[in-house]
Design a binder for these strands. Structure first.
Lengths: 326, 326
DNA sequence: CTGTTAGCGCATTCAG
DNA sequence: CTGAATGCGCTAACAG
């Protein structure tokens, strides 16, 4: 079932069929109708593969994230998809498992598969395959990381100011000793949040603070909690999952939250408002980040060559896991 | 940069280049080396688009789910992808938003895009586009729903027996009045779980029970909790999200769990073991479901035409939200 | 063992 | 305004 069958069925040339379907030039009304009838009758659907080969554009977007099953990433994908699909694009999904080698392999696979654009939440920014993509005229959008290069757009939450605002709130409410439990510093977000924490400690002339490095997971939260020797006024966690781990571990040891110690998260995942005590955290909206990213990608796809960088505002969500100190 | 450039660069025909790269027939060692050298030097990567057009197979798999950002679905995708990617397949991702119309549209889009296989967690089983797919020789795998048709494989958790086992446990532990808060009965899982609940009530000759219909969400859980007039021994929820909503709503009204009432979930999402009280629930493993599904798809892709149906065992996870009744 | 060639399905130039 | 012919990049059949 191809364009030839349609042409034969209604007695016109394949060129005419193509013209009718693409509206690429005037065709007499009667032929238009004949063609449309045949198309309908035969249930003809043009092959995107053939179109891609012919036109050199695929309307495919490669999407590479560290972990599809992580709600943060899947929400980004959903957001981006919601704007891209309206323009006819479709997503090739890849999961890098946080593995640099795999990331390169998948980037290559995506290129071979044929894509007009690439959206990536990268493990390894110095990955030169990203340069290769732009060299091949494939538009690149980097999410949750800022890369300032020609022909690459970036979008991320304003992790730095989100953390600043959080510490400010704690400080104003009487907290004077802190422990920061960071996610993996190989990520842009962890570096930014840690930097903000350090800067703010210096600003406020607070010396009683400590930083512990871990991963963005519940288990890592539990583990880091065990490393805490002296409970401070506030335990500031790199994200919500760490905070959940910490809270449960502290409870196990008989501490009350927030009476004995305030605990904060970052992200505002859906469960943060559902658990007891509900979690004070810095909200970022991955779905909106995805949507905004999709729009940036669309801009590049439409031919505006210049790169763009967007930083999304965060929002402090004050809940039950923190309280004022005298 | 195409096969012609490579051929020119090392002074052979394009056929030879193709043969070397595909190992499709013997080529003299010296030519092999020359070709490989040029390929390396020029950084040549064969176009999958052209290969697809020529060979009639795309190595693309269409994947359609109601909501990518739902961890249940994204885990399925991750599982299936983990087995499919090893065989060179790549996933076209689509989100139906639980919308029947959209589902049909996307199925059509996937077909046009060119896919060898389709994996779908359907909204509408009676969607005739699925028949169309098999008619077009596209292998179809249905997940989380059982469809008994030629050339369509299915995989789902054994929702029925999972629920039977749960009620058994509650009954043996002295619960004698029940309320079941169901998810949307348009889904296979909700129908199966409800059916099991009803059957078991009859089996055990329990008359003091009630069924309320809602959605598989936290908000719906809250809403359904408000509809409960008389608190029973056990509130059996269609899934964990409903259970979270119910528990928080009950707590707000001063009920203690499990002292005043036992509450159970279904799924065992990651947070179920983290919250207080931790949730007694029926565990199903969507990642494993995805993996098993991927394997079924691979079988069909490899040419075994016959369809297959798999039901995955569930596991009862007994935690703090239930306790024995006298 | 290697090269030449046809054709996958389509959009598009060129004639008419 | 419409049709014939070309070629996108590749694999496979056919020749040699």
């Amino acid at each position: 079932m191809n364009i030839k069958d349609v042409a034969k069925n209604c007695g016109v040339s394949i060129a005419t069929v193509s013209r009718v379907l693409n509206g690429t030039s005037y065709v007499s009304p009667e032929l238009v109708e004949r063609v449309l009838n045949s198309v309908e009758k035969l249930g003809y659907k043009p092959s995107k593969i053939a179109q891609s080969l012919r036109k050199g554009e695929t309307y495919n977007i490669g999407f590479l994230v560290p972990d599809i099953s992580n709600m943060f990433f899947s929400s980004i994908i959903k957001g981006a998809n919601s704007v891209l699909e309206n323009e006819g694009y479709i997503i090739f999904l890849c999961n890098s498992y946080g593995d640099r080698k795999k990331e390169v392999k998948l980037l290559e696979k995506l290129f071979i598969s044929g894509i007009d654009g690439l959206i990536v939440v990268p493990i390894d920014i110095h990955n030169n395959f990203i340069d290769f993509m732009t060299y091949k005229k494939i538009k690149v959008l980097v999410i949750d990381e800022i890369i300032n290069k020609k022909n690459i757009s970036s979008i991320a939450s304003d992790n730095y100011n989100g953390m600043i605002e959080l510490i400010d709130y704690l400080y104003v409410n009487g907290h004077s000793s802190f422990i920061f439990l960071s996610g993996n510093p190989s990520t842009f977000s962890a570096r930014k949040r840690t930097k903000a924490f350090e800067d703010k400690m210096r600003d406020l002339k607070i010396n009683d603070f400590k930083i512990i490095l871990g991963e963005y997971t519940y288990e890592s939260g539990v583990k880091m909690a065990k490393k805490i020797e002296k409970i401070p006024d506030a335990i500031v966690c790199g994200n919500d999952m760490i905070a959940f781990g910490v809270i449960n571990q502290l409870k196990r040891n008989g501490f009350r939250i927030p009476e004995d110690v305030s605990v904060t998260g970052f992200d505002d995942v859906i469960f943060s408002s559902m658990v007891r005590p509900s979690l004070t955290t810095v909200k970022q909206d991955p779905y909106e980040m995805g949507r905004a990213g999709g729009q940036l990608m669309l801009k590049m796809l439409k031919g505006k060559e210049k790169n763009e960088i967007r930083l999304l505002k965060t929002k402090l969500e004050i809940r039950e896991s923190t309280c004022g100190r005298k």
